[in-house]
Structure formats: C-alpha cells, structure tokens
Simulated assay, not measured.
Amino acid sequence: MEILAYGVQADERPLLEEAFTGRHELRCLSVFLNRDTAPLAAGHPVVSSSVNAELDAETLARLAAGGTKLIAQRSTGFNNIDLDAAEKLGLTVARVSHYSPYAVAEHAWALALAVNRRLTRAAYRSREFDFRLDGLLGRDIHGMTVGVIGTGKIGECFARIAHGFGTELLGWDIERNPACEELGMAYTELDELLARADLISLHVPLLPATHHLIDARALDRMKDDAILVNSSRGGLVDSAALVETLRAGRLSGVGLDVYEEETGVFFTDRSIQGISDDVLARLVTFPQVVVTSHQAYFTRTAVGQIIEATVRNVDDFAAGRRGENTLVPR
C-alpha cells in the first residue's frame, strides 16, 4: 500500500523507512497534516500523522476526497482527531495505544532536575566563562513531597524514580494504582496534593474534565516555591494563569515539554521569524522556566515502538482486521 507520512522528524525518518521496507511503499514529508496540506495525500490510501496534526472535519473531508482510507496516527493521544467526522466519511483511524513509559517519565524528571538546579542558566554562563554560583541555589530532591497527578503507566514510572530519590509520595487519580501504593504513595484529594507537594508532575490525558486542570485557582493552592512539571498535554495547564503566577514571583521552577497552543510552533524552526504567541514568548523569558519541544517521547526505544505499532496498524488494515489500536470504526 502507498503511505504518505506527515510530520516526520529527521531522526525518525530512517527508522520509518527501515520498518516499512519490503512491506509498503512509504513517502515522508516534514510538513504537518492540516487542511492546507491534506491535498498532498491525493492518491494515497494511507496517511500517517504526527501528534501535532490538525485532523478536523474539513481536513478529514479533503483526505477522503483524495482517496485516503486509513489514518495511522503515530501517537497515543487523539484529541486532535474529529472521530465522529471520520466515521461519517468512512475513514479508518488507528493510533499507538502505548509505548515506553520510561521515556516520558525520565524526561519529566530531567525537567524537574534542570529547573531545580538551574542547569540551563549554569550552562549558558559556563559558555561565557562565567563560573559564579549566584542564583544557582537549588534544593535536595531527597525529603521532598512529590505529587503525581495521574498514576497510570507513566505516572507509576515517575513515582518509582521519585521513590528512589527518597521522597514522600502523594497521588491523585480516578483509580488507585496498587504498584504506587506499594511505594508508599498516599492518595489524596487534588486540593490537598497541590497544597502539600514541593514538586508536582502531570501525567493525565487531556479530556474535557482535565482541560485547564491547573488553572489560576490550582496555582494559588500551590506552595510559593513549588516546582511544576508538565510532560503530558499542554491543555492541562492554563498558560496565561501560569504567566501571571510567575510574574507574581511564585513557583521556583516550571518544566514544560508541552504547551496548549503548540500546534504549528513546536517541531518547527522559528529562530528567524520569531513567534506571535505572546504567552509562550513570555513563558520562555522566566529564568526558572525550561521549555522543551514535546520531546519526552523522543527516545530510540519509544520511537521504535511507535513505528512498530504503526506498521501493525497498516498491516491490520490491509488484511481487513480490526486491531487493538483501531479507534474508528468503533
């Protein structure tokens, strides 16, 4: 089958090409899938999209008009896809249901450690041969109270690392994870977790109920010197409220791998033209904030698993099978 893959990163391309060699014909594009780029897929029965694709009803209609039958998204999240529209158009939609939870949990901790120990500022200074310690004072992770919001596979991995540091663990989720409880995690109400935790990490999916879970009220509940890490979905955090919190001199560190308006910005080079998003532009100016470009999943292990699942999804479709990753038809 002929496959057009959108939003393919340079390091991802050889892995994709190797996986599909001898199975299906693959063409890779660096541009993201949206209503403007959808016509490029004309004549391709299968398209593979990245996490930042904009698969609204119009985009899907243009894909269907061009002959596309399957959308194989190379990510776990699918809040960017209008599943109802896809079903009406007769499109099959598949995702990657899971990949290495260690990749995301480890990156979340990398962000937490970077903001706590001011590593970005220290690295920039060293390049200019400025070896002062002014403004680089951090805290021991050992002995901190760590709040894990969402204790599924990734949250559990994050909690295991936290346990290794010697922290007190608090958890919040709709269901308790026995493995986390074995680590000594105490499940609490969200307000209590926000008020007690020195470090808070988000690991819940983006749903209507979790949109802006961390809003102005939640930020007000947090300690003035708390650390906040989000490696899940940008929409979990009210970014404008976060800016106001930081402007007020609160929070000692914020690590963000995702941003609620990242589509069209993350995974692109804006170093010349800059960005028009005033909130994001303001966020990156705070010295205690580190922003990375949705790269928590981006390890050889995790990307390899994502590609393997994508190949299986295409094979299932070609064989007329409904696989475990099929979202539509439902």
Rank of each mutant, 00 (worst) to 15 (best):
A65D: 10
G66A: 08
G67M: 04
G67K: 09
T68M: 13
K69L: 05
K69P: 04
L70M: 04
L70Q: 10
I71A: 02
A72Q: 15
Q73G: 02
Q73N: 06
S75G: 15
T76S: 08
G77P: 00
G77N: 04
F78E: 13
N79Y: 02
N79Q: 08
N79K: 01
N79D: 15
N80Y: 11
I81R: 01
D82A: 00
D82F: 01
L83W: 03
D84R: 10
A85L: 08
A85H: 11
E87H: 01
K88Q: 06
L89T: 14
L89I: 09
T92W: 07
R95E: 01
V96C: 00
V96W: 02
V96Q: 05
H98F: 14
Y99S: 07
Y99V: 07
Y99E: 14
Y99N: 01
Y99W: 05
S100H: 00
V104W: 05
V104D: 13
A105L: 02
A105S: 08
E106M: 01
H107F: 01
A108I: 00
A108F: 07
W109T: 11
W109N: 12
A110M: 11
A110D: 05
A110H: 07
A110C: 09
L111W: 09
A112M: 04
L113P: 05
L113F: 07
A114L: 06
A114F: 08
A114P: 00
A114T: 10
A114S: 09
V115Q: 08
V115N: 10
V115P: 10
V115W: 10
V115F: 12
R117M: 00
R117T: 05
R117G: 00
R118G: 01
R118P: 08
L119S: 15
L119W: 12
L119Y: 13
L119D: 13
A122N: 09
A122Q: 02
Y124D: 15
S126Y: 10
S126V: 15
S126E: 08
S126F: 13
R127P: 07
R127Y: 12
E128R: 14
E128F: 07
E128C: 08
F129W: 12
D130E: 07
D130W: 01
F131S: 05
F131Q: 02
R132F: 09
R132M: 12
R132W: 10
L133P: 09
L133C: 13
D134F: 06
D134E: 15
G135W: 02
L136N: 13
L136A: 01
L136Q: 09
L137A: 13
L137T: 14
L137H: 14
L137S: 08
G138Y: 09
R139Y: 11
R139G: 13
D140G: 10
D140L: 07
I141V: 04
I141R: 04
I141C: 00
I141F: 02
H142M: 11
H142C: 12
H142S: 13
G143W: 11
G143M: 05
G143N: 14
M144D: 11
T145P: 13
T145F: 11
T145W: 12
